[in-house]
């Protein structure tokens, strides 16, 4: 038997919510970035599962997943560079202590 589509959807929903919790609750900026990576991965699992179950003869779902990879790589590179820059100038990676723009 093939694994039903719903199983994949529930799994990726759970993965997305775990990532969202990390983004909302963690203090370390790197941990927040990890949460974002988890959420992007959940989206990719969704895209590939939909491709496999609804349109396996095409390639659109996989192509979309590849573009998500590109965005994830760019986001990780720039995000980590920002974290290192903040750490250099303010000596912290705890986002609550980075309040330059706070009125």
């Amino acid at each position: 038997m093939m694994v039903p589509l719903e199983w994949y959807l529930i799994l990726s929903a759970a993965l997305f919510c775990i990532g969202a919790y990390a983004v909302l609750a963690r203090r370390n900026a790197i941990a927040i970035l990890m949460g974002i990576e988890l959420m992007l991965n959940a989206v990719n699992v969704n895209l590939v599962a939909f491709w496999r179950h609804l349109e396996p003869a095409g390639a659109t779902g996989q192509a979309f997943a590849l573009f998500v990879y590109v965005v994830a790589a760019a986001e990780a590179a720039v995000g980590l560079a920002l974290i290192i820059a903040i750490w250099r100038s303010r000596d912290t990676v705890v986002l609550e202590e980075v309040d330059l723009l706070k009125g």
Binding site: A14, F16, C17, Y21, V23, L24, A25, R26, R27, N28
Partner: peptide
């Protein structure tokens, strides 16, 4: 260092609620 901020329980509730709605 405390790994989570003061509103972590609100974040947890929001994540669980999102999962419930999605499910």
């Amino acid at each position: 260092l405390d790994p989570v901020n003061r509103q972590w329980w609100i974040g947890a509730i929001a994540a669980v609620a999102l999962f419930a709605v999605l499910g």
